[in-house]
Write a protein that binds this DNA or RNA. Structure first.
Lengths: 240, 240
DNA sequence: CGTCACGTTGAACGGGATCAATCCCGGTGG
DNA sequence: CCACCGGGATTGATCCCGTTCAACGTGACG
């Protein structure tokens, strides 16, 4: 399978990179990959590191290679809202706009592959396929954003938590969506971050998780590791 | 100004169409416009008409020429959330996906210019510029969606209403955003729809509007017509 | 050991929801 | 002309979910 992607001439950097088949780099042939790789830099950032600052100019875009990046918006008085989560091999950046309107921060330790904004925008003109991939990625982000708007506006705290756990489970282990079987994973977010994502307070998040634990729907180990014991009952609580 | 758009050979249908300079059709030359115009249909729909049904297949995309379209999502028990509003000359449709995951409905009387999904998707391959326009439109929608996530998750009822009024004012009369001067406009949504947009109840929406009226920040005539008397005080209440 | 960050638990409060009555206004028919 | 109707909007009274404030638990690290 995937014989359409020939690895001859592909930069070593890209050879085993997930962004090359599921991410935007899949739009490029080996020549173009090589050209892009010239100005490309792979690097790690540890949890908590700010990657893109609000209203600061953005000179580089990246692919997320591993870990989770959170996108947040902050009101003047400090209230915060997470408006998106990005998993590998998502593209991180807002093309055609030099100022960022949000903050991107490493939620877990992450690996990134970054390249200059200008390089990407130039390549998009030469290779429409690249712009196509980008469009598809942004359409997915839009779909997700709208799903969360429903959660934020209309779901109860209990439903928000259930939806959140399901969403994480599906992103960590795509098999979950197909089979109704259980799942286990590490939460990429702290309680405070979950609260910022769901428009709740830490206390409410904690109480709702305790509740699900009490009803034997999930188990929690070390605060971060979650095991879903009763997937269908959890899904029933998601509300939609 | 705008001598870059020559009108010779442009289909009559498109000659005075706003979508041709601010909308996606601006990406097309007169030949391509003519080709598209062949399978294009202009029509009106009155307020309340369902344009695109949830989980129904979508065979046509459109440009909004006038009026306002609301995009809604509904939970199984009937709770509803408006996840987007579209004004002229916005593009209406979700490319690369035949099933819609939301409902599009005329909020006011609207005029649309629609064309078959397949035609557009074919043209995008020939004319990358078209895909570029679409990307920009969808990026704008994404930015808006994220702004509203902050409102839904973190703003109080009073702040939500203030932000909503400002947002509508800016969309109806773009001059508002530049100058701080007052504005007057007709609300494109009923109280119930505003509630669905802001994640509130009708009663709360009504009370907050009454409050703003009491504080002489706005005036309201015939329930639908709003005059902003004190723009800066209104902006101060938006919260961000 | 103390400290500090993070999470949990408890008690009281309050903003917005809920339930219910009333108003307002355009339309329709006598 | 007025009487009646129906849908949307407003207003009031009460309730409840999630917040707020506060105390306490737990583990990592000096």
């Amino acid at each position: 399978m995937r014989e359409d992607i020939h690895t001859t001439g592909v930069p070593v950097l890209c050879a085993s990179c997930e962004a090359r088949h599921r991410g935007i780099c899949g739009a490029l042939n080996s020549e173009q990959l090589a050209a892009l790789a010239k100005s490309t830099k792979r690097h790690k950032a540890e949890a908590g590191k700010e990657l893109v600052g609000d209203s600061r100019s953005v000179e580089r875009f990246s692919n997320v290679l591993s870990g989770v990046v959170k996108l947040t918006k902050t009101l003047s008085d400090g209230r915060q809202q997470i408006v998106g989560l990005q998993f590998a091999p998502d593209f991180l950046g807002r093309p055609f706009q030099s100022e960022s309107t949000l903050t991107a921060e490493a939620a877990t330790d992450v690996e990134l592959c970054s390249f200059p904004r200008q390089t990407l925008e130039r390549m998009m003109k030469e290779q429409p396929n690249l712009e196509h991939r980008l469009l598809e990625q942004k359409l997915r982000e839009l779909d997700q954003a709208r799903d969360w708007m429903v959660a934020l506006g209309r779901k109860t705290a209990a439903e928000k938590i259930a939806s959140f756990l399901l969403m994480i489970a599906r992103n960590i282990d795509p098999a979950v969506s197909l089979e109704g079987r259980g799942a286990a994973f590490d939460l990429p977010l702290s309680r405070a971050e979950i609260a910022d994502f769901l428009g709740l307070t830490v206390e409410t998040v904690s109480r709702q998780i305790t509740r699900l634990r009490g009803e034997k729907i999930i188990r929690v180990e070390n605060n971060r590791h979650v095991i879903i014991d009763d997937m269908s009952r959890l899904a029933a609580r998601a509300g939609d």
